[in-house]
Simulated assay, not measured.
Amino acid sequence: MIKEILVPLGQFFESNIGAIVKTGLSAAGVGVISYAAISAAFDIALNYARSQFDSLATDALQLIGLAGIGEALGLIAGALAFRVTFTSMSKLGVLPK
């Protein structure tokens, strides 16, 4: 009984394991590379926004601070970071689509 199950299963894996592993590794590799590229681009954009924000005049920064724009920009940046991470993780196969 077990021999009737294991022999065809072994033949299946023997003939198809290379294709399965190749497909899995290429999908994971492409996902990791795309996540790294998106993460690097996001970090560059965030650093640029910080440098532009910090280059404002002192009076303008004080008014912006009173209005709470810094906290709002932090919330937006956090939401964007979550979206990038969540989208990338579903492409990597860590989370279901």
Rank of each mutant, 00 (worst) to 15 (best):
residue 95 L to I: 09
residue 87 T to P: 00
residue 51 S to E: 11
residue 54 D to L: 15
residue 48 Y to N: 11
residue 44 I to W: 10
residue 64 I to G: 02
residue 92 L to G: 00
residue 64 I to Y: 08
residue 88 S to D: 10
residue 61 L to A: 05
residue 11 Q to V: 13
residue 47 N to E: 09
residue 50 R to D: 13
residue 61 L to R: 07
residue 81 A to S: 15
residue 92 L to D: 01
residue 76 I to A: 15
residue 31 G to P: 01
residue 47 N to W: 06
residue 17 I to N: 13
residue 50 R to C: 06
residue 97 K to M: 13
residue 83 R to M: 13
residue 83 R to K: 13
residue 21 V to I: 15
residue 47 N to A: 14
residue 2 I to C: 06
residue 96 P to D: 03
residue 57 A to N: 10
residue 10 G to D: 03
residue 58 T to H: 07
residue 15 S to I: 05
residue 24 G to W: 00
residue 15 S to P: 00
residue 6 L to E: 12
residue 81 A to V: 01
residue 64 I to M: 06
residue 80 L to M: 14
residue 17 I to D: 03
residue 12 F to D: 04
residue 9 L to I: 02
residue 13 F to E: 03
residue 48 Y to P: 10
residue 13 F to T: 09
residue 14 E to L: 14
residue 60 A to T: 15
residue 75 L to T: 10
residue 47 N to D: 13
residue 22 K to M: 06
residue 19 A to H: 09
residue 19 A to G: 07
residue 14 E to N: 14
residue 30 V to N: 15
residue 4 E to I: 06
residue 33 I to C: 08
residue 57 A to L: 13
residue 64 I to V: 15
residue 41 A to I: 02
residue 51 S to Y: 09
residue 21 V to T: 10
residue 30 V to G: 12
residue 4 E to S: 14
residue 79 A to S: 15
residue 62 Q to Y: 05
residue 34 S to F: 08
residue 20 I to S: 09
residue 62 Q to R: 05
residue 82 F to T: 04
residue 82 F to C: 07
residue 85 T to Q: 02
residue 82 F to V: 04
residue 80 L to V: 15
residue 73 L to F: 01
residue 34 S to M: 14
residue 29 G to S: 01
residue 93 G to W: 00
residue 26 S to P: 01
residue 35 Y to L: 15
residue 6 L to S: 11
residue 74 G to D: 11
residue 51 S to G: 08
residue 23 T to D: 09
residue 53 F to W: 14
residue 91 K to C: 08
residue 81 A to N: 12
residue 41 A to K: 03
residue 95 L to R: 04
residue 65 G to T: 02
residue 61 L to Y: 01
residue 11 Q to F: 11
residue 96 P to A: 06
residue 7 V to H: 12
residue 1 M to V: 10
residue 69 I to H: 06
residue 92 L to S: 00
residue 69 I to A: 13
residue 71 E to D: 10
residue 23 T to W: 09
residue 11 Q to P: 02
residue 56 L to C: 06
residue 79 A to N: 02
residue 94 V to Q: 03
residue 77 A to D: 03
residue 54 D to G: 09
residue 61 L to N: 04
residue 30 V to C: 09
residue 83 R to L: 14
residue 6 L to I: 12
residue 94 V to M: 05
residue 28 A to L: 12
residue 32 V to S: 15
residue 61 L to Q: 10
residue 37 A to T: 09
residue 95 L to T: 12
residue 63 L to W: 05
residue 62 Q to G: 01
residue 5 I to S: 10
residue 8 P to K: 05
residue 79 A to K: 00
residue 94 V to W: 04
residue 54 D to S: 12
